[in-house]
Amino acid sequence: MENTVIRLKEVVKIYDGEYKVAAVNGISMSVERGSFSCIAGPSGSGKTSLLNLMGGLDKPTSGDVFIEDKNIAKFSRTKLSDFRLKKLGFVFQELNLIPVLTIRENIEFPLLLQGWDETRKKKAVNDIIEELGLEKLSERRPLSISGGQQQRAAVARAIVSNPAVILADEPTANLDSGNARSLIGLMNRLNREKGITFVLSSHDEMVLKEAGSIIYLRDGKIIQGA
C-alpha cells in the first residue's frame, strides 16, 4: 500500500448527454510510486476521462478514487483544488501556460499558490529551469516560443513543487516527432533520475515504447495491462 500513489476501485463515469455514454466503465487499477505508465487506446476509449478522474478534475459516477489513500471522490470543490495543487502535476495537450506570465512566472505559479517563501521558491524555480534547459526562454511569454518549448515549460511547472504524480493527457499530440521524442525523453529521465511518477495517455507508438507499463483501454474498459 505504501507504494501505491493512485488506486481506482470499480470506477464508473457515465456522461448523461444526448446518449448515455459510459466513458469509464468499471475500472480498478493502481499506479505505483516511481512508475512510468501509459494509457493507450483508440479515440473515444476513455483515456481523457480516466485521467480526469485520477486527477480529481472530475468526479466518478460510482466507485472510489484514492490518492495516497485519500478518497477524493468525497472532497469538496475547494478541498479538491487544494489537493490538486499540493499532490498533482498536470500537463495537457497544449495551451498549458498562462499567456500573460513569462515562462519563469508560469513555473513559479504553483509555488506562489502554495505560499512558498521567496528564497526556497527562487531556488526551486532556478533548479528546474536549469535542469530542463529553459534558461534562454525564462523571460519570454508562452506565445513567443515553440510548441515543444511550451510543453517542456509545462513539465517544469508540473514538477516544480514535487507532487506525488504527474498526469499528462496526450502531451505530445501537438508536437512533431522530434519534439515529441525529446519531451518523452525528458519525462523518462525525470522518472529515472528523480523517481517522479508519471501517468501519460497517448496513442503514439513511440511514446508507448518508452513507458514502463501500458494500460490498453477500449470502450471505457481495461483490455490489457494494469
Binding site: T78, S81, L95, N96, L113
Partner: peptide, 16 residues
C-alpha cells in the same frame, strides 16, 4: 475559457 480551466486544474481556487 481554457486558461481559467488550466489555472483551476493546477489548483487555483475559485475565490482567487
Amino acid at each position: 475559457f481554457t486558461e481559467f480551466g488550466i489555472m483551476s486544474a493546477i489548483g487555483t481556487r475559485p475565490g482567487q
